[in-house]
Amino acid sequence: MTQSVLETRNLSKSFGAIKAVDDVSFALQKGELLALIGPNGAGKSTCFNMLMGQLKETSGQVFLHGEKITGLLPRQIWRKGVGRTFQITATYSSMTVIENVQMALLSHHREIMRFLPYATRRHHPEALDLLDMVHMADQADRHCAVLAYGDLKRMELAIALAHNPSVLLMDEPTAGMAPKERVALMQLTAQIVDNFGVSVLFTEHDMDVVFGNAHRIMVLNRGSLIAEGSAEDIRNNPLVQDVYLGGGSVFGADEEVLDA
């Protein structure tokens, strides 16, 4: 088997007595669009934050191209070629759209500590190309604080692609967007995966988005992976149906369902 791009082994996180993420192991293959779904409180965001170094794991490891990255800071993980977008957009509200992207490019080219050049003149064509990729080139010089939320999300995607990452982590990429925009954004992402061979792991609430685009789906419930497979497999998995349509397992009334 070829080496996976991103892999977790027995990743766990406890908050006090609560096991938010419990012994999660999975692997992301090159060029794959992998979805991580699960009901609210399943541990998706906790899992994500550990992958990005924002949260320290209780036990387990994360490997990037076979190299252990657990314990590194977010900015160190980014340097190793992992990009991310946030559930709630995090953008530089005092800058224009293109400056937001240029900022990531400046960091990528290690020019942050330069005092002499004008920042806006650095890597302008490169930034414009990135914006073009997400169909935002025509808005490059707008103040990002006036953008619609869907446009901000696309801008964030351009930022995340700035350092030519091998892995892209997207935490609820379509949260807060209109249904039409959601589909468009995920199609765009799928396109980028196809064109550039980026591997994407994303969490999502909107099942249309998930089933329409993901190559493979993992289901997390109460901290544990309970299913994994193609859209068809997941749709027909009784355990997943139980988690999403009811059966009480979310509330812990029926432990056997999980253990079955």
Binding site: R84, T91, Y92, A104, L106, I112, R114, P117, Y118, I159
Partner: peptide, 20 residues
């Protein structure tokens, strides 16, 4: 300059700046 922009980035969104 790039430094000034980085400083503004750190002010506007420390989260995004650290993540890049």
């Amino acid at each position: 300059s790039p430094f000034g922009y980085a400083l503004r980035a750190a002010r506007d969104s420390q989260r995004q700046a650290e993540a890049t």
